[in-house]
């Protein structure tokens, strides 16, 4: 074997193992969103509990937090307490709105879920799943933050707990409500 060949073999192996090492910390299921900075797709749909129609357009000029969930989803139960806490924290702010979006679910199951775990805000049913596709959703829970101009500013896949909660409230929602650019 020539020196060059030996050298490139060693470099190749090192690169490969570095790549594998890096890969261990990724999640093969996560898909980075391409929606940050684009206008939030509008939607209308029935409220899970009352059945009345809710539209995103109603909340123009406000900071909107969308939380996609389903009654069959385990991680949604994990984050539910914190989601309620988050609503408590900001609900008195005139420019803040929170909407749950019930995804791939049966209406009775969804109603039962909300009764069991409690709810303080409105939830829209995504009956055909087209709303979820509009938002590039592939698993629940997924959370989006839309600013006063109707632009998607933040997305998180997975439960909003611990560090994620702190980051979302302090670095995303609060600055948006204060009209200062968020620092994520």
């Amino acid at each position: 074997m020539s020196r060059g060949l030996q050298f490139s073999l060693v470099i190749g192996l090192l690169a490969l193992f570095a790549l594998f090492y890096q890969g261990l910390w990724g999640d093969p299921r996560s898909i980075p969103t391409v929606l940050i900075g684009t206008t939030a797709p509008t939607f209308t749909g029935p409220d899970v509990e009352s059945g009345q129609t809710i539209s995103l357009d109603q909340y123009k000029g406000k900071v909107v937090l969308l939380n996609f969930w389903a009654s069959w989803c385990y991680e949604c139960k994990v984050e539910h307490k914190d989601i309620l806490r988050l609503h408590q924290q900001f609900k008195d702010h005139p420019n803040f709105v929170m909407l749950g979006i019930n995804y791939q679910d049966e209406l009775p199951d969804a109603k039962k879920y909300l009764k069991t775990y409690g709810s303080t805000f409105q939830h829209v049913r995504d009956i055909k799943g087209s709303l979820a596709i509009d938002y590039g959703v592939y698993g629940v829970p997924e959370t989006f933050v839309i600013d006063q101009q109707g632009v998607i500013r933040h997305k998180w896949v997975g439960p909003i707990v611990g560090q994620v909660y702190t980051n979302l409230t302090e670095n995303v929602i609060t600055p948006l409500l204060n009209n200062t650019p968020p620092s994520t």
Binding site: L24, G26, D27, P28, R29, E75, G158, P159
Partner: peptide
């Protein structure tokens, strides 16, 4: 679980 998800969210 580098290429295929053997587990969900919890890595």
């Amino acid at each position: 679980g580098v290429l295929t998800s053997v587990h969900t969210f919890a890595t």
